[in-house]
Structure formats: structure tokens, C-alpha cells
Amino acid sequence: MTSTRSRIRRAALGVTAAAAALVLAACGSDDGSGTSTGDSSPSQTAEAEAGAHNDQDVSFAQDMIPHHQQAIQMSRMAATQASSAEVKDLAARIEKAQDPEIETMTGWLKAWGEDVPSGMPGMDHGGHSGDSSDMPGMMDSEDMDKLMDASGAAFDTIFLTMMIEHHEGAVEMSTTEKGEGEYGPAKQLADDIIASQTAEIAEMKQMLGQSEGEN
């Protein structure tokens, strides 16, 4: 009798172990193959990115890319032409913040099948249908030449004056996107731009007041 019970117990343990092995194998297959229902394929991700957006989202990205490019162009001049360490630090922060944002917006436009602006701001933008002169806060070629020819304290004053106007334009564009855009990440970026650049405007106005007070 005891022997019979032992055989039954061993058989039951064997069935339990086999069932556990099957469960583990199934879990391993889902994790290793990437074919479980919770995973998204690259094509599904692209479709999601290309989804819920409107013309305002496209215009925001196509306009803000050259707008950011010009801000970076101006900021790079500060490395060698500015006299104030504060101006140089601000310019470095502007470039560090806006360069990744250009990459992000470029990715959106590509996912949407839209033209990505090319060329330097103020010149022909290739596939972009807009005109840089229509963008709030954009500097024209004469302004850029004036900044390029300046140095020292004069550069600091011109840079801060122009960048305040440039930032105000970006805030205006971002406010429009928040109100009229549809694509969530674009509206979030617009919100981030408003917050960061409004703070930098206040910082630059203080620096400009100090600079003018010294002159």
C-alpha cells in the first residue's frame, strides 16, 4: 500500500514539474521573440507618430526648425565674439537646448512624410513653403551681418537685444501651436519652449540692463 502511494505521489510531482516547465517556456518565448501582444513593431510606432496631427503641427515644426537654427548660429558667434562670460554661458545653453529639439522636430516631419527645412535661415529653405521673414523674431541678413561684425561689449548688447526679440518670436509661435495644434508631443514641446525661453528673456533683460548701465 505504501509503495502504491509513493508511486502516485511521484507521478503527481512529475506532472506539476512538467506544467511549470511549459509555463516558463511560454514566458521565455514571449520575452525573447518580441512577438508578445504588448510589443510594438517599428512600423506600428511610425504609424503612431504619423497619426493625430494637423497642418498647424506641420507648420510649427517646419517654422521652428529654421528659427532654432538661426538662434544656434547667433549663439555660436558668442563663443569668440562676446566679452561677457554670462553671455557666453547663455549662448552655450541655448545651443545645447535647441539642437536636440531640431532633431526631434525633424523626426516628426519625416514620420509625417512632410518636407524638412534645409539651408541657412534667411535664405532659401528648399522644400519649406514658408518665408523666414514671416516668422516672428527672425533676424534678416542685415541683422546677422551686424552681429557678425561686432565684438566685445558691443556684441554683447546686440546679441542680447536680438535674442530677446528672437525668443519672443519663438514664444509667440509656440503659443499658437498650443492653441491650434493637435499632436501631443508638439504641444508639449511648445509648452517647454514657452517656459524655458520666457525665463531666458527675463535673464537677458537683466543682463542687458546691467550692460547698458556699465556703458
Results as ranks from 00 to 15, higher is better:
187 K>C: 07
97 A>T: 00
182 E>N: 06
175 T>S: 11
95 E>C: 00
121 P>I: 04
196 S>G: 09
98 Q>K: 00
157 T>A: 13
165 E>V: 06
178 K>T: 06
119 G>W: 14
112 W>H: 11
122 G>P: 11
151 S>F: 03
187 K>V: 08
127 G>H: 04
100 P>G: 08
115 D>R: 00
100 P>S: 09
177 E>D: 12
105 M>P: 11
135 M>A: 02
170 A>W: 07
164 I>T: 02
153 A>E: 12
132 S>H: 05
104 T>E: 15
124 D>L: 03
192 D>Q: 15
162 M>I: 02
97 A>C: 00
127 G>V: 04
103 E>Y: 03
140 D>G: 12
154 A>G: 09
199 A>N: 13
112 W>R: 14
154 A>K: 15
162 M>A: 11
102 I>N: 03
185 P>M: 12
113 G>Q: 15
181 G>Y: 06
108 W>D: 06
198 T>D: 01
171 V>C: 07
134 D>M: 05
125 H>F: 05
115 D>G: 00
97 A>F: 00
114 E>Q: 13
187 K>E: 09
168 E>P: 04
110 K>Q: 11
125 H>L: 09
194 I>W: 11
195 A>D: 15
98 Q>V: 00
114 E>K: 10
178 K>Y: 01
143 D>W: 04
164 I>L: 03
95 E>H: 01
200 E>A: 02
183 Y>A: 07
102 I>G: 02
197 Q>M: 03
178 K>H: 01
118 S>L: 08
166 H>M: 05
164 I>W: 01
178 K>I: 07
191 D>A: 14
118 S>M: 13
192 D>I: 07
201 I>G: 02
117 P>E: 14
157 T>I: 13
135 M>L: 05
111 A>P: 10
158 I>F: 08
160 L>G: 01
168 E>H: 08
99 D>A: 13
108 W>Y: 14
173 M>T: 02
183 Y>R: 10
160 L>R: 01
177 E>S: 10
109 L>E: 04
178 K>R: 12
167 H>Y: 03
169 G>E: 13
